[in-house]
Nucleic acid binder design. Sequence first.
DNA 1: ATCTTTCTTGAGTGATCGTTCAAGTATATA
DNA 2: TATATACTTGAACGATCACTCAAGAAAGAT
Lengths: 190, 190
Amino acid sequence: MPRRPNYDREELIDRSRDLFWKRGWAGTSLKDLEASLQMKPGSFYAAFGSKDALFELAMEKYAEDGRRRLEGLTEEQGPIGALKSLPAMVVGNDDAPAKACMLSKTLVELHAHNNPLADKANEHLKKMEEQFLELFRQAQSTGEIDAGQDPAALARRYQSDLIGLRISAERDGVDAKAIAKEIADSLNRL
Amino acid sequence: MPRRPNYDREELIDRSRDLFWKRGWAGTSLKDLEASLQMKPGSFYAAFGSKDALFELAMEKYAEDGRRRLEGLTEEQGPIGALKSLPAMVVGNDDAPAKACMLSKTLVELHAHNNPLADKANEHLKKMEEQFLELFRQAQSTGEIDAGQDPAALARRYQSDLIGLRISAERDGVDAKAIAKEIADSLNRL
DNA sequence: ATCTTTCTTGAGTGATCGTTCAAGTATATA
DNA sequence: TATATACTTGAACGATCACTCAAGAAAGAT
C-alpha cells in the first residue's frame, strides 16, 4: 500500500558506526549524522528513534563485524594463527575510522556518567573476551600451546594488551606495528 | 592595594583535574566546574581564561603527579622495583577519580577532532614513555635485566600494556589485579 | 485514477553549551 | 578613613544540543 523508504537501513547503520567510532558519542552531533546519512531530522527519528538507539545499533554492528572477522581468521589460520594475526591486522587497517576499539572508547567516555551504553560496550567486550578464551582453549586441545596455563587468564591478558595496542596506535609517533609484533610473538612462548 | 582571591588556585586545579579525569572533556560542563570549584562564571574566567585552558593546567598537574609518584617509587625500590610496583598501584588506587589514565582518555576523546588538547596529552604520554625508558636503561646498567634487549622497545611495550590494563580496570567484572600481576611478572623474564 | 498509508521535509521546540560584562563588594595601601 | 584596585556576582549572550511535528510528496492497492 504505502511508500517505502528510499534508503538502505543497513548502510545507514554502517555509516553511523564509522562516525561514532571515529568521533565518539558526544563528539558526534545530530547535525553530523544528518549530513553523513543525508537524512532530515524527521526521517532520522522515524527510522531510529534517538541518537542513543542508533549508537546501540552501530555498536552491535561493530561487535558483530569484529566477531566475524576473527572467525574468518580462525578458519584460515587456526586458533593460534588467528590470535597472532589479529594485532597486526587491527593496527594495519588504514581504512578504519580509527585505530582504537570503538567499544573501549565508548566505555571510557560514558562509564563515569552511568550511561547504559557503557554497559552495552562492556557486554560486547565480555563476549569478545569469551571468543578469545575459546580460541585459547582450542589451541590447548590441539597442543599448539601448553595446556598447563589458565586459558581465561590468557584471554584476559590478550584482550587487555589489544586494547592498549589499539590506543597506542592512535598516537602520533608510536610504532604500533612493533608492539603488535611483540604481542603476537609472546604467544609463541606459551 | 587590592583585594586578593579567596581561593587556593592549586586546590582548584586539583579539583578540576579530578573532574576532568573522571568525566572527560565533553562530559564536564562549566556548570559542573562552577559547582565543584564554587565559583561563578565571572571569577572562573578571570582566573583561568577558558575551559580548555583549565583542562590543560589539569592535565599538566596530572602528568606531573604521575612523574613524581614514579620517581618516589624508584627511590624506594629501584628502577625495576618501581616498574613492577606501578601496575598494581594504579589499579589498586580506589581513591582516584578513575582507573583509566587521564592522558589516554583525553587522547582518545579528542584526537579525531584535531583538538590541540589531544596533542598535549600525547606529549605528556611521550614524556612518560621516556621516564619508563630511563628506568629500563638503569635496570640494564645495573644488570637487573638483560642488556641485550632494546630498552626503547621495552618502554614502548610497557606503556602500551599499562594503558590497556588501566582501561580494563575501568570495566566491571574484570580482574585487573591479575593482569597487573602478570605485567609485573613479565618483567622477571627479561 | 483514486485512496490509503508511509516517508520526507524543514522550521521550530526548550534546554544547555561556553562565555561575557556591567555592577557590586572587599581589602591592601596611602 | 579615603581611595584605588582587584575580585565576585549573576543575568544574559548567541550558538548549538537532541528532538518534535504539521504539512507535503510518493507509491502500492483497489
